[in-house]
Lab assay of single mutants.
Amino acid sequence: MTYRVRIENADGEVVTIEISADELREKGLTLEELLPPNARIVEVEEVEP
């Protein structure tokens, strides 16, 4: 499974990243732990691999 994640950074700019569930598991991280300081998740969407 892959996630498309929209993130708002500290400057108010919204960027989109895609990350797979396998990648998260391998790194032992959650989506929140990948965020840079002062950023927030705006939207998470599951996409087909």
Rank of each mutant, 00 (worst) to 15 (best):
40 R>T: 08
15 V>C: 13
20 S>C: 04
21 A>N: 05
10 A>G: 09
19 I>Y: 06
12 G>Q: 03
34 L>G: 03
17 I>C: 13
32 E>T: 09
36 P>M: 04
4 R>T: 02
3 Y>D: 00
45 E>M: 13
11 D>E: 10
46 E>W: 13
42 V>F: 05
20 S>T: 11
3 Y>W: 12
47 V>F: 12
36 P>K: 03
14 V>H: 09
46 E>Q: 09
27 K>Y: 08
9 N>G: 09
18 E>S: 08
11 D>H: 10
3 Y>T: 01
29 L>M: 12
10 A>S: 11
39 A>W: 15
3 Y>P: 01
3 Y>Q: 01
40 R>K: 13
35 L>N: 01
44 V>E: 01
34 L>Q: 02
17 I>T: 02
21 A>G: 09
8 E>S: 07
25 R>A: 09
40 R>D: 02
24 L>V: 05
44 V>K: 03
16 T>S: 06
32 E>D: 08
10 A>E: 14
29 L>Q: 06
16 T>E: 07
40 R>A: 04
20 S>W: 05
24 L>T: 01
9 N>Y: 15
46 E>R: 13
45 E>T: 14
14 V>R: 07
37 P>R: 08
39 A>R: 04
22 D>N: 12
48 E>M: 15
5 V>M: 05
44 V>N: 01
47 V>L: 11
24 L>F: 04
23 E>M: 13
38 N>A: 05
18 E>A: 05
37 P>A: 10
48 E>K: 13
33 E>F: 06
38 N>R: 06
23 E>N: 05
5 V>G: 00
42 V>M: 10
32 E>M: 12
2 T>R: 15
13 E>Y: 11
23 E>R: 05
12 G>N: 04
12 G>T: 01
14 V>A: 05
47 V>H: 06
39 A>N: 05
46 E>F: 14
49 P>N: 13
6 R>T: 15
13 E>M: 12
9 N>H: 13
43 E>Q: 12
35 L>D: 00
6 R>Q: 08
12 G>R: 03
18 E>P: 01
48 E>H: 15
30 T>H: 05
36 P>Y: 03
13 E>A: 10
30 T>I: 05
1 M>L: 14
21 A>F: 10
46 E>A: 11
34 L>E: 01
7 I>G: 01
45 E>N: 08
22 D>F: 13
37 P>W: 07
31 L>N: 00
29 L>A: 07
3 Y>R: 01
1 M>F: 13
14 V>T: 09
23 E>G: 04
40 R>E: 03
6 R>G: 02
27 K>N: 08
23 E>A: 08
